[in-house]
Design a protein around this nucleic acid. Structure first.
Length: 304
DNA sequence: AATTAAAACAACCGCCCATGA
DNA sequence: ATCATGGGCGGTTGTTTTAAT
């Protein structure tokens, strides 16, 4: 038996809001506030809408100082770097961008930013097909099973815990760093990362992989990490060499099992997995990741 | 000008969590 | 301690707009 619905679905209007409905809702909330109960609100003002629908309408469109569209490059960078750091926690990301709503940012990411970044993928693939002759190296990543890749992700997570900012050093701007640190302090469900220092993020030529991660196989060369500007503007400095294959860094991580652009390995998945315990067991994680690598060998994956 | 496809936007759904009884 | 409830959130779907043919 499921929970009782929040409203009478049969007598509730759905779909786009009319100007009259908007006006009613706006006028009431501006005069009396929400009264702390969204569910009861529509009845009070004679709207045939679900309370949740009213809340969404107010938060996303009617409340003052809402901005729509026209995302700046700086906002793009903040969204991208936070997404990579904490995953699809749109409300947290939105909190860093005054006037933006989580829904707006989510839509913007799904329809534009993601494609903007993935656009690099196609270009790189084209580049590979025209220049790579060594088929074995060319397919080194694709040959890995998804489970192996997932395991590898865990290993990378471990590495990233040990050196949390090494993966995306130049993506961090001061605001992002501030956000991550505050999340770290306030949200016990987040991974306990050491404080991120701004100077750390200015390091140049940081190699994101240790020798262990070279288990991927081919000559993974540590690259000079690029900003999202590079990725978005197709600067070659954002390419990572995987054997004879050139990939955008972003795509490289995407290919490490991040299906459909889900970067959960860094934020969400890990969060979920660790949320059952109040503190993260790093020793256990080390052991597990070592087991993972050994299992991969046992299973005969071509990791070398 | 008409049609189709793709992109962008708006809204809904259902789950989870915090809170109060 | 348990349960019911509302709020918040992320994922997804539906609708509208724009671009391409």
């Amino acid at each position: 038996m499921g929970r009782a619905p929040c409203c009478d679905k049969a007598n509730v209007k759905k779909g786009p809001w009319s100007p009259e409905e908007d006006a009613k809702l706006k006028a009431y909330i501006e005069n009396y506030g929400t009264g702390g109960n969204w569910i009861a609100l529509p009845q009070k003002i004679g709207l045939k809408r679900c309370g949740k629908s009213c809340r969404l309408r107010w938060l996303n469109y009617l409340r003052p100082n809402i901005k729509h569209g026209g995302f700046t490059e700086e906002e793009d960078n903040i969204i991208c770097s936070l997404y990579i750091s904490i995953g699809s926690r749109w409300s947290i990301i939105a909190a860093q961008l005054p006037g933006r709503t989580d829904n707006d940012i989510k839509n913007y990411w799904n329809t534009r930013l993601k494609k903007k970044l993935l656009g690099r993928r196609r270009q790189c693939n084209d580049l590979n097909h025209s220049s790579v002759s060594d088929q074995d190296n060319n397919c080194s990543l694709q040959n890995l099973s998804s489970s192996a890749l997932e395991r590898l992700q865990l290993h990378m997570q471990l590495q990233s815990i040990q050196n949390p900012i090494s993966l995306w050093p130049k993506l961090m701007n001061p605001k992002t760093i501030e956000t991550l640190n505050s999340l770290n302090q306030n949200d016990q469900s987040m991974i306990n990362l050491p404080p991120v220092l701004e100077q750390d993020c200015q390091m140049e030529n940081v190699n994101c992989f240790s020798s262990e991660t070279n288990v991927v196989g081919s000559n993974q060369t540590g690259s000079d990490f690029s900003t999202f500007d590079d990725l978005m503007n197709n600067n070659d400095s954002s390419l990572v060499q995987i054997g004879n294959q050139m990939m955008a860094e972003f795509d490289f991580y995407m290919d490490l099992g991040m299906k459909d652009g889900n970067l959960g390995w860094w934020g969400n998945e890990f969060d979920v997995n660790s949320s059952s315990t109040s503190s993260w067991d790093s020793a256990n994680m080390v052991r597990k990741s070592e087991e993972i690598i050994h299992q991969d060998y046992d299973l005969g994956y071509s990791l070398l």
